[in-house]
Design a protein around this nucleic acid. Structure first.
Lengths: 196, 196, 196, 196
DNA sequence: CATGAATGAGAGTTCATTCAT
DNA sequence: GATGAATGAACTCTCATTCAT
């Protein structure tokens, strides 16, 4: 497959992403994707063999983009607290976002497929989150902005809270107020409070 | 429907529960349930119209049982800390449980079905968790065992962490060590530390 | 599946037989059979999973019928020569029969499927033919009607000639005259000629 | 089409022959041939429109080669019996040959295609076999080596036996011993036995 | 001439749902 | 009420064939 094919592949992945966003993972058929791409039935099979394969590519693309945007924006901020707040703000967006949103499909996917533990991109994403938070916290402690005894455990804790919020938002429902409340709670748990 | 019918319905729900436990929500077909119940194809339709309906009943049953068992066991303990620890221990079991386990199916279900907000039993369960934790925390504060400024927010926070752990255990994988670490972290965040 | 199902199965096999007769083996699709049976698409799958399975049943039925008819008719004759002639006459019919005829489909089937040597019904049929001929010849020799040194080898030889005629009739074409000529040749090779 | 095209055509036919040898006739798709030839999909259609057309060319090539080799080798032998034995030995090879072998595909082809009687190369081959055998037998009779009343009928008979063996070898299975037995039987039927 | 991406008809298969018994 | 055979819509996947480049 030449360059052109790569181009086409990307278009398919992009259309498919939209479909997964709307219907989740398991509900999506090859036919859905065919129709979304305005491609022929057989045409799709030239590039991909199954919805699973396509979804994996969607995830890969997703990850690359996330990685890039994180790096880019985070380190422009001045204080560690600002960085953390920016991170949490991004998370808030992802938690509450209703429209363009792969979160559900991703959960479904990892629930259902017996994923080969390595190459599990969700895990990578989670671990990167923990690492990032840990670094931020450590930097904050060093800068005298934060108080934290075990940054790694706290980092993980925050990631679990965020994960819980994401899921809850899509199952039981979570109000923006609740999200704000929780993010503030996280922040306050870290910020050094002199009066204590 | 007479008594006999009620009886039959219960049998179906019980068999179906097993199926959902094994295959999640979306993967389960009416055929699967028919086979598990050793009932006739048409017979099943006398009681239920869809897997969705059946799953809702499974959830309802589940809830009743959970409610009952919670009430029962919790208030036998002596100290508030003990009660909290017992609660967390139960949660740990649910987080790590691999075999008999409706968690995945439940998530899937609430992801996919545009749930009628009322009657959302997952929400009720979550809220009950928050309420229980809040009560425990308040009792703990009153007893001088805990320190906590806003019990409700902390209660929610704990529930989100637990939710995050549950999901993570089924997607990216979570070790028992990590679970213990997080539960301990929760506990330590509450217990009044005099030296501070 | 109860008795009624058995009934239905037989109807399907019978319709399918017709289809195989007309189109050979490989050309037949499940759809063809569905249409021939005037059954629903899914209905067929209640009874059979593949054309292969159906064809095997057709063959089985075929065999049973052949076995029965052979036994029945053969032993009514008076002299061994008459018996042999009757057998050959039957074979002639099968060689030349153009209309109701599974021969081609059967060859195709055994060409293409890597048949489990045992359970190969074509083999059984061939061997039964050899056995029958051998017995006839031996009886003929005993009765002083035939001359033959090694009845088994001759029996096989005759079966191979008949096999060759059958195939040739369906590939290169064989005239009735040629068939008669060959059958006569076989007969003359056996009948004791005193003048020699 | 120029010389170059002829060249290409031959390459295609040669590759296709290999494919037919491995998969029979009906199982071969244009795709298979495209892949075997390492030619482009569209390219193949410049030369041939269907697998049928290609197979016909394969057969033609086959025939030319067979013709040539027969002529060449046969008439080097000294006695008629030797010539016949050589012929039968060649046939034995073809009967038992498992690997490089178009026999099955050829049968399949002539079963399925409603062959235009003329241009039926299988028929030509069969008739050439009969003619050759008849000549050999007649020569043998003239030389006093064979005894035979109607050489043409006997020639046909031998061809039918060989045909039967070929088919049987590919359907019900035939041991080498059986082939030898039959070839010997043919030979003994011809050789003049003085003691009689 | 040559390429190979694209098309769409059609085969195989599964399942929710109905309905005569 | 209960049964399970039957239906047909929908999905997956393959391949002969075309056509812009």
């Amino acid at each position: 497959m030449g360059e052109k094919s790569e181009q086409k592949k990307k278009i398919i992945i992009s259309c498919a992403r939209q479909v997964f966003t709307e219907k989740g993972y398991k509900n999506v058929t090859m036919k859905d994707i065919v129709e979304a791409c305005e491609i022929s039935r057989g045409g799709l099979y030239l590039y991909f063999d199954s919805t699973e394969q396509i979804f994996l590519e969607v995830l890969k693309l997703e990850q690359d983009e996330t990685d890039a945007s994180l790096e880019e924006t985070l380190y422009e901020e001045s204080t560690v607290t600002d960085i953390l707040m920016l991170f949490l703000k991004e998370q808030k967006k992802e938690i509450l976002r209703r429209d363009d949103n792969l979160v559900i499909a991703t959960y479904e996917f990892f629930f259902v497929t017996k994923f080969p533990k390595k190459e599990n991109s969700a895990r990578r994403k989670f671990e990167m989150g923990v690492k990032l938070l840990t670094e931020i916290i450590e930097a904050g402690v060093a800068a005298g902005e934060f108080y934290c005894e075990r940054p790694i455990v706290t980092g993980k804790n925050i990631m679990f809270v965020l994960e819980g919020l994401k899921v809850a938002a899509r199952t039981v429902g979570v109000s923006e107020k609740t999200v704000d409340e929780q993010l503030l709670y996280i922040l306050q748990g870290l910020i050094y409070e002199e009066e204590e």
